[in-house]
């Protein structure tokens, strides 16, 4: 169990700098260069990374802007691509053990959340004393947010040019990281939900590509929830 302000901040910085900060840096470099191609300014690209803070939505924004869609359609598509934040915030906030924090503080916590922090905190929180979880989260999340903003800016200006095969490896690192992080998640219902989620997304993507993740969440999550609740292993008494 990790506790104490100093050690929890140290752990958060180490956990962020050991991988996620670099992954986000390189991923957001990709976003920065796409944003430039779509006609956004460098300041706009950085503000997008800081305030939208959800890559699928940012990519939807850039793609639709470069194909000349209307503003309302772009905003709607971005919102849809980031709708996962609703269940993510709901499942995350109670883990923070914030007690009686005010509404603005809770909203700020929610604004800082990203898929990285969510996955890493879900993995690390069981090893961190509840009273220190919020400090861990804020330190971790703001470190990777900073790395993301830097990556966006550097990618925008095309300051680092890498060979194409290296870029492929770097793009691949992001899903790989999440897959490894989530492989450590405990709990039968959670594990079944992830397996059903993988199966559902293939079908949902071929039938309703615009809503595939929402369908995946509801169908895969419900199946996982039901399996965890009603299906008990024979030898579990």
């Amino acid at each position: 169990m990790v506790s104490g302000n100093g050690s929890v901040v140290r752990k958060a910085l180490l956990d962020a700098l050991s991988l996620p900060a670099f992954i986000l840096f390189f991923t957001m470099m990709g976003f920065g260069s796409l944003a430039r191609g779509a006609g956004f300014g460098a300041d706009m690209a950085v503000v997008a990374s800081l305030l939208i803070w959800g890559l699928p939505g940012q990519l939807a924004m850039v793609e639709l802007t470069s194909t000349g869609q209307g503003i309302a359609a772009i905003v709607f598509a971005c919102s849809l691509a980031n709708a996962r934040f609703l269940p993510m915030v709901v499942s995350f906030v109670p883990m923070l053990a914030r007690g009686q924090a005010s509404l603005p503080r809770r909203l700020l916590d929610a604004q800082l959340l990203s898929i990285n922090s969510w996955a890493v905190c879900m993995r690390e929180f069981p090893h961190i004393e509840p009273a220190f979880r919020h400090r861990y989260y804020v330190t971790f999340a703001s470190s990777i947010l900073f790395a993301a903003a830097m990556g966006t800016l550097i990618g925008y200006h095309g300051a680092i040019l890498l060979p194409a095969v290296m870029v492929l490896g770097l793009i691949f690192v992001s899903p790989l990281f999440f897959a490894l992080v989530l492989s450590a998640v405990k709990g039968r219902a959670e594990r079944f939900s992830m397996i059903f989620g993988c199966a559902t997304v293939i079908v949902a993507n071929s039938l309703f590509p615009a809503f595939d993740l929402l369908i995946t969440g509801v169908v895969g999550g419900s199946l996982g929830f039901a399996t965890g609740k009603f299906w008990k292993p024979r030898n579990a008494g």
């Binding site: 898929i115 969510w118 989530l182 998640v185 997304v201 993740l213 996982g224 965890g228």
Partner: peptide, 21 residues
């Protein structure tokens, strides 16, 4: 709450799986 947590896990796993496959 447990159901919403399962929905999050399914969504995130689906997103990662889609990025790879």
């Amino acid at each position: 709450f447990q159901w919403v947590t399962c929905v999050s896990y399914a969504m995130v796993a689906g997103l990662i799986f889609r990025m790879i496959i």
